[in-house]
């Protein structure tokens, strides 16, 4: 019997290792490339006026996106105010009251599915239930659309975090005669506070960069948001509108807005995840 030489196998192995390293480098390279482009173009567009004033007329330079920054912040806040409590309570039901029931299994399954529904479909849905009946686009509708994206994320993280709390803690609280709700809010929430906060912040980071659900709900506006009861300026739809315009000044403003969104979302993600890791 002849022995098969080892070198083709070793060469193949080495080749695969090199290729895999190159593939990983490629992935990181794209990340660096995108960030570099956004930083370079964005930094050129940023200045104090850009952050604080209203947009300029089509084609003319100067002006800013102060209204869009305020609008995005308001709608993200609204999304949290609506989505976080509902998501939290839904998560409590899944982990505490409904554990093991068929209803809870169904809801958990649907929450997972809901996270994968394209955000533009959520926008379409909110358009049909809020914009059509009221007859106009509004910041409220935009906030609701974002809240529907926050909801399943917060519900699932809350459930996972509550499930990780040792059962002994739950049982001791209940054994002391504490009602289940008190045990949940005062003992269990406190035990997994960090995890809950991480989940909420990551959800916020995700929705604050969303565009598609705002296209037919909040629309956009060149004015300061006086109330949320009308088309509301926001950064992401502004990027879309400006990038597609033929005016270089507007395209530059789109880069400025991209800079704010990209850096804001990434910074929030990185800080949250770093904090979450340090606590472990």
């Amino acid at each position: 019997m002849t022995r098969r030489p080892a070198w083709p196998r070793k060469a193949m192995d080495a080749a695969v290792k090199v290729v895999s390293a190159l593939a990983a480098a490629l992935g990181l390279g794209f990340l660096a490339w995108i960030l570099f482009v956004v930083l370079r173009h964005g930094a050129a567009a940023l200045n104090w006026t850009f952050l604080t004033s209203l947009p300029s007329a089509p084609g003319s330079s100067g002006g800013g996106l102060g209204n869009a920054i305020v609008g995005t912040a308001l709608m993200t806040l609204l999304a949290c105010a609506l989505g976080v409590p509902v998501g939290l309570l839904a998560g409590v039901y899944l982990a505490e009251y409904g554990r093991g029931t068929r209803f809870a299994t169904t809801v958990r399954f649907l929450a997972n599915v809901m996270m994968g529904i394209p955000s533009i479909i959520i926008g379409l849905f909110v358009y049909a239930i809020l914009v059509l009946p009221t007859g106009h686009f509004s910041g409220w509708a935009g906030g609701v659309a974002l809240a529907l994206l926050v909801l399943p994320v917060v519900a699932r993280t809350t459930e996972d975090m509550l499930a990780m709390v040792p059962n002994a803690l739950r049982e001791s609280a209940l054994a002391l005669g504490s009602p289940h709700w008190r045990a949940t809010v005062q003992i269990l929430f406190r035990a997994c506070r960090a995890g809950l906060l991480t989940g909420v912040l990551l959800a916020v980071a995700r929705v604050s960069g969303e565009t598609a659900p705002l296209l037919f709900t909040a629309l956009n506006s060149p004015y300061w948001p006086r109330s949320l009861d009308g088309p509301t300026a926001n950064l992401t739809v502004t990027i879309f509108n400006y990038a597609m315009s033929p005016y270089p000044a507007w395209q530059q403003a789109a880069w400025g807005a991209s800079f704010i969104i990209a850096i804001g979302v990434l910074a929030l993600t990185v800080v949250t995840r770093t904090l979450a890791r340090e606590r472990k």
Partner: peptide, 14 residues
């Protein structure tokens, strides 16, 4: 690589 998932869709568009 995970950070690639955090970049908003619109930034990929730009």
């Amino acid at each position: 690589i995970e950070l690639l998932a955090a970049i908003p869709s619109i930034i990929y568009g730009m």
